[in-house]
């Protein structure tokens, strides 16, 4: 295993996000390591997406420090960087709970837009681009190659020239991940990537995420309700309830934590437990074999 494993990529310290009188996130601290998949789980309304929005610059945290230390050696205090710069400079890419593709543009164009900043630099205020200079053309070819690589990987090559909005749901999810990866991020934040996928698609997604982790060595932050996916692929689990951290650690330990079971299933007075929910919480085998990547 690479020496970088185990080094923190993201450190969240005392993060609080308040909306009026409501603490959506309350004094949350955790760390996510490089080359690891960190899953944030918790019941609906636990504040998971709020954490994502703070990390990706859509919200300014009320209190807290968010430090990103990518392998390049730079250090970014995300709470001080505004909006789009987090994606541009710190290299945090994300997907959305309700897919946000550029629905009217083609699949390939979606991936080209993701490489905007690199291409903008090459196009020198669009002048080199307008004149069609060689430097810009080469950059565009590289961008197309990267896009083609991800299309191929996601099995979207045949649909490259279709509108993104016309893709079936599962493919739209994958395209959104491909788009995020085309920004060449240091950290990838996925907001419920398995929502609405069938079991086979979820399996493919799990494999894909393991491959991305192994190949690019980036940290993946994952919000997910599908426990089979979470238990299979995550290296570290962070459990939230009502905006507060109730447990964190390796999946096997967290899934047996009494506080977690209480948060998910209610206290003992709550009688009617759907059996499938209880079944999900039983630790499933920790890893699935993935192509060439030994489980951590």
């Amino acid at each position: 295993m690479n020496a970088e494993t185990g080094q923190p990529l993201l450190t969240v310290e005392h993060l609080s996000m308040r909306f009026g009188g409501l603490f959506a996130v309350n004094d949350l601290s955790f760390a996510a390591n490089r080359r690891e998949i960190t899953a944030i789980i918790g019941p609906n309304g636990a504040g998971k997406t709020t954490v994502f929005n703070c990390l990706t610059g859509f919200y300014k945290p009320t209190v807290g420090r968010l430090t990103l230390s990518p392998p390049s050696g730079a250090r970014f205090l995300l709470e001080r960087i505004d909006g789009f710069r987090i994606a541009k400079e710190a290299g945090v890419a994300r997907t959305f709970q309700n897919i946000r593709l550029f629905a009217g543009m083609s699949v390939l164009e979606n991936l080209m837009v993701a490489q905007h900043n690199r291409l903008m630099r090459a196009s020198v205020y669009s002048l080199a681009g307008l004149l069609g200079l060689a430097g810009y053309r080469a950059a565009e070819r590289r961008a197309l190659d990267l896009a083609r690589h991800w299309l191929d990987r996601m099995g979207l090559l045949a649909q490259a020239d279709q509108t993104a909005g016309s893709l079936p749901y599962g493919l739209q999810r994958r395209l959104e991940i491909a788009r995020a990866m085309c920004t060449e991020p240091a950290m990838l934040c996925l907001d419920e990537p398995a929502a609405g996928l069938n079991p086979r698609e979820s399996q493919e997604l799990s494999r894909l995420l393991l491959d991305i982790r192994g190949e690019f060595g980036i940290g993946i932050l994952l919000i997910e309700h599908d426990m089979s996916v979470v238990m299979q692929i995550s290296d570290h689990l962070v459990v939230l309830d009502h905006g507060a951290l109730i447990a964190q650690g390796p999946p096997a330990r967290v899934s047996n934590d009494p506080a977690v079971i209480r948060a998910y299933l209610g206290t003992e007075e709550d009688e009617a437990l759907p059996p499938e929910v209880a079944g999900d919480l039983v630790a499933v085998p920790h890893s699935i074999p993935s192509a060439g990547q030994p489980p951590c």
Partner: peptide, 20 residues
């Protein structure tokens, strides 16, 4: 890229911000 960014902005500003 600037032209594509315009169209992307028309489609979804939030997604544009998330792409930097």
């Amino acid at each position: 890229p600037i032209g594509r960014a315009w169209e992307a902005l028309r489609e979804d500003e939030t997604a544009c911000r998330s792409l930097g």
